[in-house]
Nucleic acid binder design. Structure first.
Length: 433
RNA sequence: GGAGUUGUAGCUCAGUUGGUUUAGAGCGUCCGCCUGUCACGCGGAAGGUCGCGGGUUCGAGUCCCGUCAAUUCCGCCA
């Protein structure tokens, strides 16, 4: 029995016996010869069955997207792009596909609507172009992890069931927890700060977070994966920004190294890494630039339109896709952000192609100050006391971030919605499949 | 939370100021033909309670009201 070979590993060597396990992507029947396009996770190739072959009738009865095991020999040819095709000797149907498909796996001009793409996730990921997204996300995961492990971070896993809110602003999912109420974590924020107080010095987490916001946009989900970091014993906020910049750079380089060709082929995107430093603007600077450019600007936070405009400005002026907006007003930041003064926090958003992808800040580690800031935001002390206690016993100065990596991938590939980057997307109106 | 748009065949969409018996097209599916296809080609067939409920009218896919679903933008955020 031959060992299975992945399609991308087939060597164009005349007469070599091979075994492929794949889906049948296309069947082109042509009288006395049947052309099959086979697809596995690594790629596609052509196989042929001629009249007279014992499998000729079987080949004609196949349905597209059936799972099969194909044995045959490699035959070099000028008739295919790859320079070879498989002369089929045996077909074993592992599982037949029903017809017709609810949505086409291979599109012929018409683009399946967003709704159908979500309804039929299992077929969407069969597409080469789409499965590349998951490969890129996986590459991002591993480079995120490798980079931070290399910087002596410890990976932790915090609970997603919580006794009280983890952020003040966003809406919470409530659930029955035996005889009381629990909440789904909106962020690992409070727990990763506990890890700093615990003396772990540098921690990170990649995990799901939940937001009960009825946001109907192309970049929000009610459940998404947050890429978090918290680093202790920092001398200043600058250290956090530098760490983040180097990390993002390293992620893009690793994606580029492994998938640049496929990304160019399927998405037409090139040169997405960067070498020059990420430009920085304070919030006040950003606002005044926007004002000069004639935008009707708002008072505190950047609106969606303003973020876009700043992205365009930075692209024009610095030829950079990224920009740090620093010195956010205290009014639009949570109570635990460290304040430079009454009005301004030591915090920043990283904007990529005009979209917010990371929020980062130094945290307030002094118990008394933290308490004041909590009161200042009109929050109750009692339900948060378990958290406040972390800071009573010598918690080191620290800072970190929450990174929405799917937004990075979405904008990197020029996709229209975060739905298309999500293995399964969750929104206020989408809970299936 | 606010504003808009769209629901017609498995998919993507036409469907005129309401008016022809059987609501169309392309793709897909099924059947037949084809020895080099590669969006194969050619011939044929099946496939629809026009999202759902009410109303106006001699007559509604088309107009009105309600409802459900999806979707886009804003706000909020990652």
């Amino acid at each position: 029995m031959l060992n299975r070979v992945h399609i991308k590993d087939i060597v164009s060597e005349d007469g070599k016996q091979i075994l492929i396990k794949s889906s049948i992507q296309t069947i082109r029947e042509q009288g006395k010869i049947v052309f099959l396009i086979l697809r596995d996770i690594s790629g596609i190739c052509q196989a042929i069955v001629k009249e007279g072959s014992s499998e000729f009738d079987c080949a004609k009865r196949l349905t597209i997207e059936s799972a099969v095991e194909i044995s045959g020999i490699v035959k070099t040819t000028k008739n295919t792009e790859k320079g070879y095709e498989i002369l089929v000797e045996g077909i074993k149907i592992l599982n037949e596909s029903a017809t017709p498909l609810p949505i086409p796996v291979v599109e012929k001009g018409d683009i399946v609507t967003t709704e159908k793409r979500q309804d039929n996730r299992f077929l969407i990921w069969r597409r080469e172009k789409e499965s590349l997204i998951l490969k890129i996300v996986s590459q991002l995961d591993s480079s995120y992890r490798n980079f931070l492990l290399g910087e002596n971070f410890i990976e932790i896993h915090t609970p997603k069931l919580m006794p009280s809110p983890s952020e003040s602003s966003a809406e919470l999912f409530e659930l029955e927890y035996f005889d009381r109420t629990a909440y789904l974590a909106q962020s690992p924020q409070l727990y990763k700060q506990m890890a700093i107080s615990s003396g772990l010095e540098r921690v990170f987490e990649v995990g799901p977070v939940f937001r009960a916001e009825k946001s109907q946009t192309n970049r929000h989900a009610t459940e998404f994966v947050s890429y978090d970091v918290e680093m202790g014993y920092i001398d200043n906020f600058e250290e956090v920004l530098v760490m983040l910049e180097n990390l993002v750079k390293s992620i893009l380089e690793s994606i580029n190294e492994r998938y640049s060709e496929e990304i160019k082929l399927h998405y037409g995107v090139e040169n997405f890494t960067f070498s020059s430093k990420i430009p920085r603007l304070t919030m006040a600077e950003a606002k005044s630039i926007l004002k000069e450019r004639g935008l009707d600007i708002s008072d505190d936070d950047l609106s969606t339109a303003e973020e876009k405009a700043i992205g365009d400005y930075v692209k024009e002026k610095y030829d950079h896709d990224f920009v740090f907006i620093t010195d956010y007003p205290t009014s639009c930041r949570p109570f635990y952000h460290k304040r430079k003064n009454d009005d301004i926090t030591a915090s920043s958003d990283l904007i990529y192609k005009g979209v917010e992808i990371v929020t980062t800040a130094q945290r307030e580690e002094n118990y008394e100050t933290l308490l004041e800031q909590l009161n200042d935001k009109g929050l109750e002390q009692k339900p948060m006391q378990w958290y406040l206690d972390f800071f009573k016993y010598g918690c080191p100065p620290h800072g970190g971030w929450g990174f929405g990596a799917s937004r990075l991938i979405m904008n990197l590939l020029g996709l229209e919605s975060i739905r298309d980057v999500s293995f399964l997307y969750r929104s206020p109106t989408r809970l299936t499949p």
